[in-house]
Each structure stands twice: as C-alpha cells, then as structure tokens.
C-alpha cells in the first residue's frame, strides 16, 4: 500500500505527457525546429514553478511526509560528462521523439513499437555501465 501514491503520481504523469502531447515525436520535432512555443511553455512553466518551490523549501527548511528534511544534493562538478552525455541523449531524443518517461507512456497508449525503443534504452544504459571507466567524465 505504501507504493500506491507512486502509482497514482505515475499515472498522472502519464496522462499529462499524453494530454499535453509532449509524448509525440511530432511535438519534439516542432520543438527542435523552434516552430511553436508549446514544449518550451510546458518545460518553462515546470522549471519556473519548480525553482520558486525549491527556493521556498530551502528557505523554510520544509520537511517531507516522514518528518525528514528535504535535501538537495549538488551534482558532481564536471563539464565533459554532461556535455557529451547530454549530446548523445539529445541525438536519441530527436530521433525517437521520446525521452525515457514518454517512451513507456507511448507503450501504454498503444504504440507497441516503443517497446523496441525502451528495450534498447535499457541496453544503452547497460552499455554505459560496461564502458564508463573508459569514458571522459
């Protein structure tokens, strides 16, 4: 039962991805071609509200449901891993039109070919684990 809240949040996430059309290859193409505000509006709204909320959580030292402080951990300082990794991610994002979340939303929506994309995303993650020590970070 302790997982039911995550099931509900995931379901809301899936519905939002589908109903906002952010899970569509067409929308991702439109975004990378700068031909509509739609995707920028979605991400921009989430980030602006997110930044305000995170600042308030820090300022008032808010706690989570179990009474623990909500902590934000600074990500490891580096340029190479974020730039190279991010670029590879972007290549895949524009080709498949889906980042990991929207992939599974598509599967639920009935686009079964996204199962191939998702399985290869798992393989890609494994491949990274396999050669990570040889990569610049």
């Amino acid at each position: 039962m302790k997982f039911i809240k995550f099931l509900i949040l995931g379901t809301v996430f899936g519905i939002v991805m589908a109903k906002s059309e952010a899970f569509s290859w067409f929308r991702i193409q439109e975004m990378f071609r700068f031909q509509a505000f739609h995707m920028y509006g979605i991400i921009g709204t989430a980030v602006i509200l997110g930044a305000i909320g995170v600042a308030l959580i820090k300022k008032f030292k808010l706690r989570d449901i179990s009474g623990n402080p909500i902590n934000f951990y600074p990500k490891e300082k580096s340029i190479m891993r974020y730039l190279i990794g991010g670029t590879i991610f972007g290549l895949g994002w524009a080709l498949s039109g889906a980042c990991p979340g929207p992939m599974v939303v598509n599967i639920g929506y009935g686009y079964l070919s996204m199962i191939v994309v998702f399985l290869f995303a798992i393989i890609g993650t494994y491949l990274y684990g396999f050669i990570k020590d040889k990569l610049p970070h």
């Binding site: 998702f118 393989i123 990274y128």
Partner: peptide
C-alpha cells in the same frame, strides 16, 4: 527505433539524468 533508444539510454546515464532529472529537477 533501436538506435534512438540506445542513444537515449546511454546518454542519459552518461549525463547522469534525462529531461526529468536535469531539465526539470536540476534546473
């Protein structure tokens, strides 16, 4: 489909996150 998925999976772990982890949570 395979190449797209492969690059998303490899790149997201290399970069330590995807759209949700970096573009939303991180920003």
């Amino acid at each position: 489909l395979a190449l797209g998925g492969l690059m998303v999976g490899f790149g997201s772990r290399y970069a330590g996150g995807c759209t949700s982890g970096h573009a939303i949570s991180g920003l």
